[in-house]
Simulated assay, not measured.
Amino acid sequence: MLEIKEVTNKKYLKEFVSLPLKLYKKDSFYASPLIKDMMEHLTDKNPFFKRAKAKFFIAYKDGKPAGRVAATVNYAHLEFHNDSVGFFGLFECINDKEVANALFDKARKFLLKNNLKIMRGPMNLSTNEECGFLYEGFDTPSMIMIPYNPPYYNELSEAYGMKKVKDLFCFIVDVPEKLPVKIDRVAQFAEKQGIKTRTVKLKNLKEELYAFMEVYNEAWRENWGFIPITKEEIDYMAEKLKPVAIPELVIVAEKDAEPVGFFGAIPDFNEVLRRLKGRLTPLSIIKALYYRKKIQSIRLLLFGVKSNFRHKGVESIMIREAFRGAVRHGFKKCEFSWILEDNYDTINLTQIVGAKKYKTLRIYERRID
């Protein structure tokens, strides 16, 4: 009574994308992405697929959709890391080990056919997007682009023989009217060294995000799971962020007019998405316009400082300016996420501003050869 079907047309793709709406129907914490946007995201319109390929599978139990999974061969990852790792992601499933194992098997076989030896995930679709299963912190909803799932997803993964490979942390802090003295003192030191900050111009967001690309591709290249971002991916990202970005929360740090740091926070649009249930109708558009004005929280989404400028106050000056903007806009909370469990410099920075770890995301892997 269990059947796995590959997504081969638009009808199945819509079923694949819509499946979580049924699984989380009674869960008030779940925020569905817009169905239309997600369907486009999983097609060649997404520049991710210029450097990767994927298969999508739906599980049916007793004729009803019971789960889904994506299996991804990421050529950009393989070129950079040369580690024979393939990925699973977009995993959703009823609490049924048989269904989960069948889905994992489909992903494993696809990766094996592509001569890969390790299956890692979840990645939706790469480390530049949503990563991990929520492992700790189920008592509050997840912010924008942070995974949300039932606790049993971790049990299903471990029952399939997967082991933890990396934890990702999320930290939360009340937006302070006044930052700690240390932050302000270090920010002033950075200013004396010629570090300047500016906010971005939304009308030129693509070009502005090229500064982030330059900083990110230099600052993160030694980090676990890093994959360089391309200009096409930045253009695609800009189109997605432009409707929700606020200039005062996106800060570029410069020295002699060259970008050395980037801080990009966005409002937690999940506060709106939880009310839209994945669909834009005339009524839901009115809802979205109304509730976006009531968003209380922001999430630090883009962050990096070039290696030669770390520990020189660049981080502090960007935080100072962004938090000033957050106060002006009336935001109450800020999430720093996600942060690798062994990225001690950034973790220490969150401690200085008084943030507390409140969620953990877990990435798993197992050998499949």
Rank of each mutant, 00 (worst) to 15 (best):
E248N: 11
Q296M: 11
F29C: 12
K201G: 06
P47S: 08
A219V: 01
R328K: 15
L34Y: 09
F138Y: 13
L34H: 02
K240N: 07
K109Q: 02
M145K: 00
D44H: 08
L283D: 12
R275Q: 15
K164N: 15
L209K: 05
M39G: 02
M119S: 13
R68T: 03
V7E: 03
N348W: 14
K117G: 01
P151G: 04
V260N: 11
S297A: 14
K356R: 15
L289R: 05
K287S: 11
T43W: 00
S337P: 08
L179M: 04
V250Q: 03
K178H: 02
W224M: 11
R51I: 05
G313I: 09
S32T: 03
G121R: 08
K242M: 09
Q193K: 13
E208R: 00
A257T: 13
K61F: 13
V252Y: 11
Y24L: 03
D27W: 08
F91L: 15
A219F: 12
E248C: 14
D83R: 05
G330M: 00
L21F: 14
N9L: 10
M213P: 13
A326H: 12
L302Y: 03
L134Y: 07
K231V: 11
D44C: 09
K117M: 02
R292S: 10
K357T: 07
E258Q: 12
K22R: 05
E315D: 15
L2Y: 12
T197F: 08
L202N: 08
Y216K: 15
L205K: 03
L289G: 10
L21T: 05
K164G: 14
R279G: 06
P65K: 08
P243I: 09
L349V: 10
A265F: 04
F262R: 00
L134S: 04
L90N: 07
V327R: 07
V69A: 12
T230V: 03
L103A: 06
F309T: 10
K10H: 03
L249W: 01
N95K: 01
V99Y: 08
F87W: 06
L103W: 11
T346I: 12
I94Q: 06
P259K: 13
G194N: 04
A66R: 02
K50N: 09
L179Y: 06
E40P: 09
S284M: 07
V7N: 10
K14Y: 00
L300C: 08
H41I: 03
W220N: 08
Y148Q: 12
I368A: 07
P247T: 05
I352F: 13
T140H: 10
E155N: 10
N149I: 06
Y291A: 01
M213A: 01
L300G: 06
K192I: 13
F212L: 13
V250T: 07
T350M: 10
R299I: 02
P33Q: 03
A59L: 14
V252T: 06
K55Q: 14
E315C: 15
